[in-house]
Write a protein that binds this DNA or RNA. Structure first.
Lengths: 167, 167
DNA sequence: GTAAGTGCAAAACCTTTGCACGTCG
DNA sequence: CGACGTGCAAAGGTTTTGCACTTAC
C-alpha cells in the first residue's frame, strides 16, 4: 500500500473510505479486490464523474474516448458493473432499449424516476417512504429485500407543448 | 351483433362492454377497429387467458400452438400490443431480458410487483396509494401522468433456503 | 514473469420488419 | 378484387464473449 500524502499526518489517519475522493475510492476498491488500476478504467471513471446527469453506456464510451481514444465498448461494458458494485454509480433502468447510469454523489434517500415517455428525459425525485415500504412488503411475504424501483411516466412540459393537439 | 342468451331478457340489455366475456370483448374490439377476427388471434387470446400467472411472449407462443400449430412468433409479437391496447392483458416489465404479460382479470387497484431476483418469480401486490402518488408527483412537475411502476426485488423463501450460506 | 485487462470482431438475444402469399369481406 | 393478416427469414440494436495481444504489479 502507498503511504498517504503529508496532509494525512495532520489527523490520525481517517481511513479514507468511499467518501473522501471518489477517484481514489475507485482505485482503492480496485486494488483491494486484486483488480488493476488501468488507464481505460480511469478514463471511464472520469468520464462518468464528469457527467452531472444520466448517461448511457454509449455516452460513456464517447466521453471516455476524449480522454483515452483507445477505449472500446467492451471495456465500458465490463467496467460498468464494477463501478456499480463499488457504489460509485447507480444503474437506472427505465425499461427502454438501453440502460442509464448516474453517479451516486449526494444521494441519501431513495430516489424515484420521473420519466417523459416522449423525450426520455429523467428527473430524480426523493421518495423517502420507499425505505419503509419495500422492507415492509418484503418481510410481510417472508422475503429479503434487495432493491426497489419506483418510476412515474409522464409527459413533460416541453413535449406537451410540441404535441399539443394529439389527444 | 349476436342476440344475447335467454337470461339476458331478465334484465334490460346490459351493454356487453369489456366486462361480460373477455373473448367476446376481444372480438368486438377487433371488429370495432376494422381489424379481423382470425384464428391465430383467437388462439393467442385463449392461450393468454388460460394462463393464471405471468407469461412471456415465448410462453404464449408455445401455448398458442397447442391450439393452432401454425401460429408464428411474429403473430404473437404483433398480437400482444393489440391485447394490451384493448385492456385485456397488461405488460409487466421487471427489467429482465424478456417482458412479462398477464391478464387483467379482477384488478381494480394499482399493482406493484414483488420479484425474486433469483428465480424471477413475480407476485402482484396491491399498492393503492400509488393512484394518488403518481398524479401528485406529475402535477407537481407540470407533467401529465401516463403510467407508473413500482417494483420490489427480494429473495423469496425458496431461494433463500437454497442459497443458505452465500452471504 | 504472470495473471489480469484490453480491443476487435463475432455472437447472442429478444423483438421487429420486409415480403410474398393467403384469406376475409 | 382489395385490404388486412400471416409465416418465413432476415434485420435490428444493445450487450456479451472468445481470442490473441498488451499491460500492471
Amino acid at each position: 500500500m502507498k503511504p498517504f500524502p503529508d496532509s494525512s499526518r495532520l489527523r490520525p489517519t481517517p481511513s479514507i473510505k468511499t467518501s473522501e475522493n471518489p477517484r481514489d475510492a475507485f482505485a482503492l476498491f480496485l486494488s483491494g479486490r486484486g483488480l488493476r488500476v488501468t488507464s481505460p478504467r480511469l478514463a471511464i471513471f472520469d468520464a462518468a464523474y464528469e457527467r452531472k446527469d444520466h448517461f448511457t453506456a454509449e455516452d460513456l464510451l464517447v466521453d471516455s474516448r476524449k480522454r483515452d481514444p483507445e477505449v472500446s465498448p467492451a471495456t465500458v461494458y465490463r467496467s460498468l458493473p464494477i463501478l456499480v458494485e463499488c457504489g460509485l454509480i447507480r444503474e437506472v433502468d427505465i425499461g427502454r432499449d438501453h440502460k442509464y447510469y448516474m453517479t451516486t454523489l449526494r444521494q441519501n434517500t431513495f430516489q424515484a424516476q420521473l420519466v417523459c415517455p416522449d423525450c426520455e428525459k429523467i428527473v430524480e425525485i426523493d421518495a423517502p417512504f420507499m425505505e419503509w415500504y419495500g422492507k415492509t412488503v418484503a418481510e410481510k411475504n417472508g422475503m429479503q429485500l434487495v432493491s426497489q424501483r419506483l418510476q412515474v411516466d409522464a409527459h413533460c412540459k416541453d413535449c406537451l407543448k410540441k404535441h399539443a393537439g394529439n389527444t
